[in-house]
């Protein structure tokens, strides 16, 4: 609740002082593509601890891990977004080291597995395209994409509304 409130007030000031507003993100790679989430939700990034599989959970939930005494659910976003077949994943993960981004979502904490060390990224409003046709179309289907960020090297980064990715409705839909 608090976060979404903050967000809308940010959007209000964006219009007044366009281009000056700086947005801080944490970026990470999923199946080769760049994605980013607002930095305020990222509690920490850690080397993925041992994940204990929880029976009868949706396929993209890898299980539960102990991060500094907190027991949190670990989600594979690549599988969540259907970016690659899930059967290949398990073996690879145990063999190579991955990172877990710990996300603090108001009432609960959750971890996302990413392959490469995430980075921080600062974008000003002019570098963010929130209205592109592509996003509009994507938004219709996937409510959790908030915009596209343009990087200096011409690459694009997909900005995610992390709370929406995790909403109950979303999770239940994907689980089916």
């Amino acid at each position: 609740m608090e976060h979404s409130g903050k967000k809308s007030s940010n959007a209000g000031t964006d219009e007044l002082v366009r281009n000056d507003k700086l947005n801080q993100f944490v970026t990470f790679k999923l199946a080769g593509g760049d994605y980013a989430v607002n930095i305020e939700y990222v509690k920490e990034v850690t080397i993925t601890p041992k994940v204990s599989r929880m029976p009868r959970t949706p396929f993209f939930i890898k299980g539960v891990a102990n991060v500094r005494g907190d027991l949190i659910a670990i989600v594979d976003l690549e599988e969540r977004f259907g970016l690659k077949p899930s059967s290949l994943k398990v073996k690879e993960m145990s063999e190579s080291q991955t990172y877990t981004m710990v996300i603090d979502a108001d009432t609960y904490t959750i971890g996302f597995i990413v392959k490469e060390m995430p980075n921080t990224l600062v974008l000003n409003e002019s570098q963010i395209d929130r209205s592109a046709d592509v996003i509009e179309k994507a938004k219709f289907k996937n409510q959790y994409i908030t915009g596209l960020g343009k990087l200096g090297d011409g690459n694009l980064v997909v900005l995610l509304d992390i709370l929406k990715v995790l909403s109950k409705k979303e999770i239940q839909q994907v689980a089916k």
Binding site: A73, L166, Q172
Partner: peptide, 13 residues
Amino acid sequence: QNPLDDNTLFSGI
């Protein structure tokens, strides 16, 4: 807690 709380097989961890 979310997203695991739909699982009725377990009462907790």
